[in-house]
Amino acid sequence: MTKQQWFQDLVMQLDSKNVKIDEALNLHTMTKMGGVADLFVTPETEDQAAYVVQYAYNNDIPLLLLGNGSNMVVRDGGVRGIVLRLEYLNKITINGNRVIAESGADIIDVSRAVASESLTGLEFACGIPGSIGGAMAMNAGAYGGEVKDVTVRTTVLTPAGEKLILSNEELEFSYRMSLIMKKGYYVLSTEFELAPGNPEEIHAKIADLTFQRESKQPLEYPSAGSVFKRPPGYFAGKLIQDSGLQGKGFGGAEVSTKHAGFIVNKKNATATDYISTIEMVKQTVKENFDVELELEVKIVGENE
C-alpha cells in the first residue's frame, strides 16, 4: 500500500482537512526542526482516533503519536508511516474536585483552568510545555510535583486500537516513565483528583513558579525542553555547566548559556545539529564525571 492509498482510506472516515500527505513536521515541533511525515492525521473524536490506530495496526503501518512536539526531536529525514496528533481532543471538564482532560489539552492550560476554580494540586505543571497525553506517558513533573500524585485513571488505546481504562496503580508510574510508555499506549483522556485550595495562595504559587521558569529557562529560543533525565545523585545541568559546554554545539544548535540542561535551536539548526550536540554533551560528561546521561527527550524519524 502507498501513502496515497492510506490517504484515500482515512479520508473516508475523517475530513480531508484532517489527513495530510508529506506534512512538514518542523511546523509541529517546539524545536522547529524535522522532516516530513508520510501522513499527518488529526482526528476530531475518540472514535476517529481509534479508527486510525486500528487502521495502522491492521495494515502494519508505523504509527507515531505526536503530542504538542515539546519533548521530541524529529530527524531531518522525517517519519515514515502515519503521524497521529490529537490536538482536537483538548476538552477540559471540571466537576467538583475531579477534572477530566483530553489527551490534546496542554497541561499548562489544565493547570490554569483548575486554578481558576480554586483547586490545588496541579500548580507544579503551570510551566510544563506538553500535552496531557505526553505528560501522562512520561509522568511529567516539576518543582517537586508529578502527574502521578493527582491521577485517578487514564483512558488509553492499545497499539491494536482497543480502549482500556487504567487506574493510577495500573499505570505503574516511576521517574519519567509509565506503563503507557512501556506498552506504547495512546492516551485519550485522564481524570485527576485535586483539592479545594485558597485562590490567593494558588495564584501566588503559579506566579512564583512561572517567574522561576521564565528567569531560568531559555524560552526565547526553540528547544525540546529539558534534554536529559536527572542522574541519581546529580543534576544534569550542573554536570554540563561544570564541563564548560554552555554556548557550544554544532551548526545552529548549542547548549543554552541560560540553562545548561537545555539545547536550543539558536539559528536554523537541523535535527542533525541538535543530535550531534546531544552526543557531544553525553560524551564530555561521561569523560569528565563518569556519569551516563540518559535522554528525557525522544528522538524519532529517519536520517536524510
Rank of each mutant, 00 (worst) to 15 (best):
M1C: 06
K3H: 11
Q4L: 08
F7S: 03
Q8H: 11
D15P: 05
D15E: 14
S16V: 10
S16E: 11
E23F: 00
N26K: 08
L27H: 14
K32S: 05
A37L: 04
L39V: 05
T42Y: 12
T42C: 13
E46N: 11
A49M: 06
A50Q: 13
Y51E: 01
Y55K: 15
D60M: 07
L64C: 04
L65V: 13
G69E: 06
R75N: 04
D76C: 12
D76V: 13
V79L: 00
V83N: 03
T93Q: 08
T93A: 12
I94G: 10
N95C: 12
D106G: 10
D106L: 13
S118Q: 02
A125G: 00
I132Q: 12
G133H: 07
A135Q: 01
M136L: 09
N139L: 09
A142M: 04
D149N: 07
V152M: 12
A160V: 11
A160P: 08
E162G: 11
E170I: 13
E172A: 11
S174Q: 14
L179A: 15
K183A: 10
Y186F: 10
S189Q: 08
T190S: 02
E200W: 02
E201H: 10
A204C: 09
A207T: 13
Q212N: 10
E214W: 02
P222R: 07
A224T: 00
P232S: 06
A236T: 00
A236I: 01
K238A: 04
I240L: 00
D242F: 00
G244R: 00
F250G: 09
T257V: 15
H259M: 09
K267A: 02
A269Y: 06
D273C: 07
Y274P: 10
E279T: 04
K282Q: 15
F289G: 04
L293G: 03
I299T: 01
V300Y: 14
E302K: 14
